[in-house]
Amino acid sequence: MTQLDAVYAFVTAFAVAALLTPLTARLARRVGAIDQPKSRGLGRDATPLLGGLAIGAGALVAALIFLDPSARTHDRLLGILGGALLITVVGAVDDRFDLHPAVKLLGQVAAAVIPVAAGVEVTNITLPFAGAIDFGSAGAPVTVVGLVAMMNVVNFSDGVDGLAAGVCAISAVAFSIIAFDLDRSYAAILAACTAGAATGFLLHNFPPASIYMGDTGANLLGLLLGCIAVEGAVKTQAVLALVFPLVVLAVPFLDTTFVILKRMKYRRKVYVADANHFHHRLSRIGFSERRTLAYLYAWTLLLGGFAVALRFIPYSDHHGHLHTGWSVVVAALALLVAAASVYLVYVLEIVKLRRITRRRRPDATEDEVDAHVERTMETGEFEALGR
């Protein structure tokens, strides 16, 4: 399996998902799987769900055509596809009948157990300056927890047209490049299938969306990305193996972490949705849906590019010796990414919010403006602000 196979897999998955998405929209309307506008959401009209069925079909068709697993990886691939099929069914039922959170969690755990039982398991990781850490018998449950967390991370971030599909597509492309370089070609091809299917669906999901992926697609993409991260990076002996997925998926991880901590701080139920995600906050300070996507896509691209750079820049000989010049380059890139991240999640909101507050409250003093901004940033409860 070569890089050219990955390109063909991407194109095939893209075409299948793009062609099937309108059919899944018709199916969703027929069975009543319709998302109604919610006060916390950014959607304005009743929109069909079940877009994840087209994503799953695109990824599956491409995988069956272009994946030729070895005897060593055959069972793991079947496990991934089996888990993907189960979570797609669970998600579709949830999109239609709105399952209880405990039932959804049980379905996620069951779907994660299938690939882990087939060998998609992290038994040890290699950390910089710490060496190898062996999980032993805890490897399987740790991996299941990680896969379930990944499903929920994607699900939590799916709150504005085009966001989850675009971020997952960008992340999958980054994983594909990294996996090829780590000689994990079957994980790289699977990542290309995932990226192509998400991008094909995005044709119909970009604002204004004609269909949503629903829990069907969010859980499926989360499981696939989690398995790809395990098989394509974390299970290798690369020193930064664990760092790659954390950097590539930093945007949805940070978003989910921020929201969960906020709910815990104010004693809200963690699993009850609210409107404090990054995309909600950007919308409330005046960003259009497309501008919100542009910023979050750019942030994801920046982080994904940095993860790829970490793999390709020869800053180390992999035996504990650093090359000064290239290490400086990596450090500079890290500072750039960190600065951009701080700007996007903090400075951007404060600066624009302060300007809008002054415009809406011309008689307020600087201390009053600062107090208002601080209170708003602390609680996450923005006023409805114009563009």
Score class of each variant (00 low, 15 high):
residue 4 L to G: 00
residue 9 A to P: 00
residue 9 A to Q: 04
residue 11 V to G: 01
residue 12 T to N: 07
residue 12 T to I: 15
residue 13 A to K: 15
residue 26 R to Q: 07
residue 29 R to N: 05
residue 34 I to Y: 09
residue 34 I to D: 00
residue 35 D to H: 14
residue 44 R to D: 02
residue 46 A to G: 02
residue 55 I to V: 13
residue 57 A to P: 04
residue 62 A to V: 14
residue 70 S to E: 01
residue 81 L to V: 13
residue 85 L to M: 12
residue 94 D to C: 03
residue 95 D to R: 12
residue 103 V to R: 13
residue 109 V to C: 04
residue 110 A to S: 06
residue 111 A to W: 15
residue 117 A to S: 06
residue 117 A to L: 13
residue 121 E to D: 11
residue 126 T to L: 09
residue 127 L to W: 10
residue 128 P to C: 08
residue 132 A to M: 05
residue 132 A to D: 03
residue 135 F to T: 07
residue 144 V to R: 05
residue 148 V to P: 03
residue 152 N to S: 02
residue 153 V to R: 05
residue 158 D to Y: 13
residue 161 D to R: 14
residue 170 I to W: 06
residue 174 A to H: 09
residue 181 D to I: 08
residue 186 Y to T: 15
residue 189 I to L: 15
residue 196 G to A: 09
residue 201 F to A: 05
residue 202 L to T: 08
residue 204 H to I: 04
residue 205 N to F: 08
residue 205 N to V: 06
residue 209 A to I: 02
residue 218 A to H: 11
residue 224 L to Q: 12
residue 227 C to M: 10
residue 235 K to G: 04
residue 236 T to M: 07
residue 236 T to P: 05
residue 238 A to Q: 15
residue 248 V to D: 03
residue 248 V to C: 04
residue 250 A to K: 09
residue 255 D to S: 06
residue 259 V to K: 03
residue 264 M to E: 01
residue 270 V to I: 15
residue 270 V to A: 07
residue 273 A to P: 06
residue 275 A to I: 06
residue 276 N to L: 02
residue 277 H to V: 02
residue 279 H to V: 12
residue 281 R to W: 01
residue 282 L to N: 03
residue 283 S to D: 02
residue 283 S to N: 10
residue 287 F to D: 04
residue 289 E to I: 12
residue 291 R to P: 00
residue 293 L to Y: 06
residue 293 L to M: 04
residue 294 A to W: 14
residue 302 L to D: 01
residue 304 G to M: 04
residue 306 F to W: 12
residue 312 F to Q: 03
residue 314 P to F: 06
residue 314 P to E: 03
residue 317 D to E: 12
residue 318 H to M: 08
residue 324 T to Y: 13
residue 325 G to E: 06
residue 327 S to D: 09
residue 338 A to I: 15
residue 343 Y to M: 07
residue 346 Y to R: 14
residue 362 P to N: 03
residue 369 V to R: 13
residue 375 R to F: 08
residue 380 G to V: 09
residue 384 A to L: 11
residue 386 G to A: 07
